[in-house]
Write a protein that binds this DNA or RNA. Structure first.
Lengths: 146, 146
DNA sequence: GTGTAATAGTTGAATTTGTAACTAACAACC
DNA sequence: GGTTGTTAGTTACAAATTCAACTATTACAC
């Protein structure tokens, strides 16, 4: 059992990444969940629309890597709750342009502020570590892993 | 829309962490799924037992942070497939001691080798970045975020 | 001992996610 | 202008996760 080999689960990158991601997600989740009853995919869609303005579901998929069914359902719920409006494209009637309502924009600005503060708190927690290098490495890992 | 403020979703740590974690998890998932038909919680339980030897479900919960229902169901499936055995404790008959079968140990060693190689490939992909610092920071974030 | 609380682990119902199939609209080719 | 292929987005069904309730056992107080 547990024969000798230098492997430690707790320094295995996929495991570490998951633990860190889960912990920070849960923290931030409690914010958008309690304040706006949103789910993870919903705040992601909200943020994309908040940052880039009017987009179609496909635009969001291309930018976020989120699967189209997740986007479809997130958009549905956000529309029901009047955070965004859907506008059929006249040229291509398959596509829909999504845009935040004033209420959606307000929620975006509110959450963006909180996200920013939270991000800064995380960075501070890392003390004198090189947080810029952390972001660089995470981006690298996210972009192409295999 | 998108009014001026310095916030970028793509450098937001919880978002980056999730993207990186998801990408690397999916990669590694394809290994244990195709080779042993395991799910994520199952390889985690397998690894804990492989590394530490005989443990109870509660031990695993304490060490991994996994929820007890996930552990319960993972153990059930691993036992069905003869990767581990369950032994009722005589002193405390609520508790069960879990231990890998020879087959479970073989799977563990096989996956551990692959994990190690994969981890090294990830580190290599990061080139001359400070991977030790990355692990340190992730551990820090995982341990207590808020 | 008897009653109450705590712990180990399981189960069931409600949500959420993943996968694949689907509809509708456009594009391109003949 | 009809056939074939592609794209936008939705829906249906299966699988996985969450949450709360549950059983069985132990611990503690009196």
């Amino acid at each position: 059992m547990a024969d000798q080999d230098t492997f430690d689960l707790h320094s295995f990158l996929p495991y570490l990444l998951n633990q860190a991601a889960e912990a920070s997600s849960l923290d931030f989740q409690s914010v958008y969940k309690s304040r706006y009853g949103m789910l993870r995919n919903e705040w992601r869609v909200l943020f994309h629309l908040g940052m880039y303005g009017r987009l179609t579901a496909s635009d969001i998929r291309d930018r976020s890597g989120l699967h189209k069914t997740k986007i479809s359902r997130a958009v549905q719920r956000l529309a029901e709750r009047r955070f965004l409006t859907r506008l059929r494209d006249d040229q291509d009637r398959r596509a829909e342009h999504l845009e935040l309502t004033p209420q959606g924009q307000a929620a975006y600005r509110d959450l963006r502020k909180i996200a920013k503060d939270y991000d800064e708190a995380l960075a501070e927690m890392l003390g004198d570590e090189d947080v810029a290098a952390l972001r660089r490495m995470l981006l690298r890992l996210a972009q192409r892993v295999s």
